[in-house]
Every structure is written in structure tokens, then in C-alpha cells.
Amino acid sequence: MGVILANCLREKAGLYKIVTMPAAIPETAGELKARIKDMRVDIIRMISAAGSGHPGGSLSVIDILAVLYSQFLRHDPKRPDWPDRDRVVLSKGHGCPALYTVMAYTGYFPKEQLMTLRQLGSPLQGHPDRLRLPGIEASTGSLGQGLSMAVGMALAGKMDKKDYRTYAVLGDGELQEGQCWEAIMCAPKFKLDHLTVIVDRNNGQIDGHVHEVMDIEPLKDKFESFRWEAQVIDGHDLGQIAAALDKARKTQGKPQAIIADTIKGKGVSFMEDNINWHGAAPKKEQADKAAAEIQGP
């Protein structure tokens, strides 16, 4: 469903005007795929320019965020405080280069600003800061806390009988934090069926592979035993991402988890599934090589 149509259908008379997405993110799958290549290059470039950052987890989550923002999110980049907007909490805050890129492409701020990442005075902090960058719903970076805040946002929406949706994007390593499971336990109690968790299951964390550091599996079974609706998808297949988000939107009575299998560093051969690229910035030559590889022949 096109985003304009989706917004028309959701429009409540008098509450808000139809929100048209900026033209920067196209709606056809082919165009979006091409645009995500540009986003991947921007991620590499901005982290390279900053001299530090987290390319691995940014490249693993970019497809998810691009589909979410371009095809599903009800938002208005010109009015980031619009009360009826959908909420996105990037709980894996270190993946923010991907979020910043998608936000720039959807019109929250000029793309040139991406290159100020991690510089003194920049709204693009090393981890997202809601008070510095309008459009960031919650300041994150301490893993394990974002889902609780997203639960609170969803709960407020339910109390106020609003129809906005809340999305929390988590890392898989992050699920080792106990607070995540406190939040996962409580969302079904309040029947938060307008809450969707997306787990970027890239199987990587600083000290190694997630299943070696501290196994979180079987993840789908865990969500289901906590009374969530859970789906497992290929987190780099744009069609599967869209189908899963669509199914989540239609599911009633339960919160939904989308476990997206991804590859850390996806799109850059020397970064893929290489844990050394969790939090290392590519040098200029490496960035050039990565960009050339992403764009292809």
C-alpha cells in the first residue's frame, strides 16, 4: 500500500491533514532498493568522516528502517511533535547512522548534515539524543531500555484511544539485558497490539557471536511463550519486511515481534559477519572500496 493512500485511510477528520511523504524515498520496490544502496554508502561515508561509529549494526538494520519509514510510518518530518504520529524507538542506539540516514532521506534534515555525525555541536550524536534531534522519540544507547519506553508510549496511546503505532527496534545481543524481558512480560498484560518489536538478529556483538557470548535462542519460542505474536523473516528482503509489518499492523489482541535475520555489515564483503566492524570506522580507502562494492558495476 502506498504511503499516501495509507495516510488517507487513517486520516481522522479534522485531526490532521494528509501527510505526503517527501519524494526522496520512492515507493516502488525497485527504486527503494536502489535508494537503500545510496543510504548504505552514506552510512559508510558518515562513519568514515566521523572516524568512529558502528557500521556493522547500521548496515544490518538499514533495510528494515528504510521500509518502515518509507512504506509504513505515519509521520510528518515537518512536524516531529505531531501528537498522532507513529513512534519509532531505536533501542539499539548504536545503529543510529542508519536511522539518521533514513531521517535525512525522508526530510527531517538536509542530507549534508549527515557528515556532521559525532562532531561537537551536531544534533547527530554518537547515540540518538531526542533533545538535540527532533524526530528522535527517545534518547537511547544504554541497551535494554528502549522497549520499556516504547511500551509506555503504546500504553499512553491506548489510554488516550489514539491509533498511532509504536515500533521498537532492538538488537539481538541487547536481548541479553534483563530489562528487555521485563518489558516483553508486561506488554501482553496491557494488550498492546499497536506495539511492534523488530529484532535485528545479526548474531553479532562486541565480544563475538551472540550464540557464543550468551545465547538468546530459541527467540521465536521465547516471544510466543511470553504471549506475543512472532514472525521470522529475512531482514534484507524488502518484500518480506513489508509483508511482516503489514501482518503486524493487522494483528489484534497481542503485541507483535518481527525477528529479522540479518547480516552484520551487510553489503560490504569485508565487513559482513566480521565482528571487528561492530564499532570501527573505515579509513578513506576502505570506505571508497565499500562504496564501490555497494553500488556495484
Binding site: E137, Q145, L147, S148, G152, M153, A156, Q179, A183, C186
Partner: peptide
């Protein structure tokens, strides 16, 4: 589950409660 309570409270606050 106090930490979740603090987080959920913060989310509620971010939505005007």
C-alpha cells in the same frame, strides 16, 4: 520489575502523562 516500571513511566511521560 522496577527498571521496566521506570522505562514505561518515561514512555508515558513522553506522550504527555
Amino acid at each position: 520489575a522496577e527498571q521496566n516500571m521506570i522505562g514505561v513511566g518515561s514512555g508515558l511521560a513522553l506522550c504527555g502523562k
